[in-house]
């Protein structure tokens, strides 16, 4: 099957499922409206969902995604307790600065998820990306290291290897 057809079918099924979850279905008309809307979404944006064929199977990637989700949830809880501690501390123990890290991920979607995760985890906030050299500028509330390699190790690598399994 062609990649684009596969992508459109997936989008149609997902859109229809979201509609069924969001509406209390009491009537057959609501089902028809949902299918029509799912078809419109598929026509407009269907081909962007799956863009390449992967070597690894879908189940493997779904397991990696679930692992990533729980890993991320744990990091996020730590982040919140950390920032809450800083905010409540009478002396405000901060040492802010903007540092730079490198990423090995190549796909746009993977980099987007990586930067979003960085923003939501301990004391770090993505400021900008240089797409050519794959460098990410990150504002840290507490700077621990000043070299690019050390920061890559500390900030990026927690998520990078799992994301590589999910997306590439």
């Amino acid at each position: 099957m062609k990649v684009e057809t596969k992508s459109r079918i997936t989008v149609f099924i997902l859109a229809a499922l979201v509609w069924f979850a969001l509406t209390d279905i009491k009537d057959f008309q609501e089902v028809i409206a949902g299918l029509v809307l799912a078809a419109v979404v598929t026509l407009l944006a269907g081909k962007f969902f799956i863009t390449t064929t992967k070597q690894r199977g879908v189940p493997h990637r779904i397991i990696a995604a679930v692992r990533y989700f729980f890993n991320f949830l744990w990091e996020m809880i730590k982040a919140n307790v950390h920032v809450a501690f800083i905010v409540l501390h009478p002396m405000l123990p901060i040492k802010p600065g903007i540092v730079k890290i490198k990423t090995k991920l190549t796909k746009d979607s993977a980099i987007t998820i990586l930067t979003n995760s960085i923003t939501l985890t301990p004391g770090t906030l993505t400021v900008d990306i240089n797409p050519d050299s794959k460098e990410i500028y990150i504002h840290c509330i507490e700077v621990h290291a000043t070299t690019v390699d050390e920061n890559t190790q500390q900030i990026g690598q927690r998520f990078e290897h799992i994301l590589a399994e999910v997306f590439e």
Binding site: V83, V87, T119, G123, H139, I141
Partner: peptide, 19 residues
Amino acid sequence: LGLVRLPDVYNRLQAATKC
């Protein structure tokens, strides 16, 4: 609280996004 206490726009964003 972080939005009020922290010093500059970047640190304030940290509190605003995470918490």
